[in-house]
Design a protein around this nucleic acid. Structure first.
Lengths: 157, 157
DNA sequence: CATATATTGACAAGATATTGTCATATTGAC
DNA sequence: GTCAATATGACAATATCTTGTCAATATATG
């Protein structure tokens, strides 16, 4: 019989393996899972966003994102642009090079995702997703989680 | 429609929230999620094990466990015992204090786990568990993951 | 407008984890 | 028994992330 504890431990292990696999998948693009996730949060956004917004969207701390963003800016994958609404909170966007690298990563991710899921029915994936989401919602409600730092604010776009 | 990618991102987020919740759950026992997990791997084992074995059981690197184990030994929750099969690889076991703290954490975990899962059917939990496990197996097979360092060896009991 | 409150990025400290290297110890092939 | 291969813990370097603090900047309430 499977307990919720088994599911929790399985989540920890899968998380680790996903990060390892992601690292390997994009290593030759000079990316890591962490960089890829940040790049993704920016590449998928409808418009350029300040670091703090990206962090909230991702559900991690502001400083974690700040460090990666600064690193990616040094590598010319990201650039800071003036923010008409805020002098200090510059808007972060992909450079041309950043777009190319991000697109390359996504190209690679597509067949990889197909491979990973081709044994599973979409119903199974859907249900697993809903279970995980239910657990997360409950934790975030109970423990006031998610923002991790600073408070919750929506897009301003 | 839910894609495997959604499930992956959900796994990342749930992982983070579980660690945060775990930290809070055992903070006043002077534990953290990381320490608790190590304590658990030792407390649940049928016999005392060397650090490298514990790491393999947990699926994390040897050094991650070594650091925590050394820390918990300093705090007198763990102790090193001579290993008849290996001079350097001492066996790690709970001290009396370690057992008390670990039991206290487990006492606390039980009702918390019930609370977390009381909305979900055991079928849903079971299925989610099997989906995650299937993904993990596939990743570990494809990427030669898990041991993370050194090779795979079974218990020597 | 004025002022309390929020947000933001910078900076620093620390927690957690991986990776590489090394010397030592153990194991296995022959 | 010898010797190559492997396992182990120590040590060091690095990656990732969180938390706390601070000054500057916005925002909101009066």
């Amino acid at each position: 019989m499977t307990s919720i504890t088994d599911l929790i431990l399985e989540t920890f292990r899968l998380n680790g393996d996903l990060l390892s696999a992601g690292d390997e998948l994009v290593a030759d693009l000079d990316l890591t899972s962490a960089r890829w996730q940040v790049l993704g949060a920016i590449g998928m956004a409808s418009s350029a966003l300040p670091v703090a917004h990206i962090a909230r969207n991702m559900g991690v701390s502001r400083q974690a994102v700040q460090r990666i963003v600064n690193e990616l800016e040094t590598r010319h994958l990201l650039q800071f642009m003036p923010n008409p609404h805020h002098q200090r909170a510059k808007l972060v966007s992909l450079t041309k090079k950043g777009r190319v690298v991000f697109d390359a990563a996504m190209e690679r991710q597509r067949p990889w995702a197909d491979w990973l899921s081709n044994d599973l029915s979409s119903e199974d994936i859907e249900l697993a997703f809903r279970v995980l989401k239910a657990l997360r919602s409950k934790l975030e409600f109970r423990y006031n989680l998610q923002p991790k730092e600073s408070s919750n604010v929506e897009e301003f776009a």
